[in-house]
Design a protein around this nucleic acid. Structure first.
Lengths: 183, 183
DNA sequence: GCGTGATAGTTTCATTCGCAACTACCGCCG
DNA sequence: CGGCGGTAGTTGCGAATGAAACTATCACGC
């Protein structure tokens, strides 16, 4: 009664790979390693961790903190909400990243006198120093990642990722009036 | 002495946007939203969460658990170590996913009599039932994501992602004798 | 002015994570 | 055998997450 076709052997086989390209048809096995969400997840993880290591050990900065610095470095002082919009992190994450950055004296917080709920976050001199050191590190890592990609490759990648992002956003929030997109 | 050019105004401007495009030149600001690692991370997150919701609420299954099922569904019974190799998760994550799946009676564990350290994990009938329900859900979600992508687009995407993955792996482990890659 | 409902941001709490120990077991050398 | 190093998998524990509740503040209507 064994479903002959399938790969359900009893022994602990080494890698098996290949196959399954033919009989995907009907409804059965899903090839995880070809499954886009999975691939994106693994790739993003590998890349993020790799880069995170760079500044984690050197500056004691985490990914969320780096993102906050990146926004401040690019756009200057911003409120927590603005940082949320630009980093695609949620407000809790941003709040905590700011708290840690503030403790490390990389940013300072100043309450808006016109609306005392809001506070403007700005990098300190020390923060800018760190930022200026990290940026080239990050960029060179990105360059390494894209090493061997022609200009055309890069443009294709850019376009495809952008389309995917747009599509993913649509799917994730079937309605929503496009609050303050990342760009 | 203010570095005039910069966007470091004191007031809490609404979005500021634009600007900064000019003085990027020298070495300064990094555009987070153009930064590949960031884009990958955000995209992967959006997609993963979207899909995770599908089976989380319906079957109480988490991403690591789903990945384990995916491997078992595709290749049949496997050891923890094999699952690690195929899912790009680390052994702790796999161990815990298996524990939860076992508790939910989705998989069963049988110790290898020849090496009592190892155990073969197999889906139960219930597990297979869940698997068979999730697969089409996941696939249709992927299809939705790729809706509007021509065959050529897909092939390009596929190739680019694969190259990035290979590159990222290289960068992450500067040496390592390629143990048991995901493919 | 003063409740009422929204908003900015923080805290709480329960869960998840990941590393580093740890346990249990195998295989080999003597 | 009998110990010694190596491997499979688990557990402990501090740190990170995320959803939901909470605090402080504003804006508006009356």
């Amino acid at each position: 009664m064994k479903p002959t076709a399938s790969v359900l052997t009893d022994d602990i086989s080494p890698i098996a790979a290949s196959s399954a390209e033919s009989d995907i048809a009907s409804d059965e096995p899903l090839a995880l390693e070809r499954f886009l969400p999975y691939r994106l997840s693994v790739l993003a993880n590998t890349v993020s961790k790799d880069i995170a290591r760079l500044y984690a050990e050197r500056f004691g900065i985490t990914i969320p903190e780096w993102r906050v610095l990146a926004v401040l470095g690019r756009f200057g002082p911003a409120t927590s909400a603005e940082i949320c919009g630009r980093t695609a992190m949620d407000k809790v994450q941003v709040s905590r990243a700011i708290a840690r950055l503030e403790e490390a004296r990389h940013v300072s917080r100043s309450t808006d006198p016109n609306d005392r709920r809001r506070a403007s976050i700005a990098m300190t001199a020390a923060g800018r120093r760190v930022y200026r050191e990290i940026v080239p590190l990050a960029q060179s890592r990105e360059a390494l990642l894209l090493d061997g990609f022609s200009q055309a490759d890069r443009e294709q990648l850019d376009g495809l990722l952008e389309r995917l992002r747009a599509r993913a956003d649509e799917l994730a929030e079937p309605d929503e009036g496009e609050v303050g997109g990342v760009v």
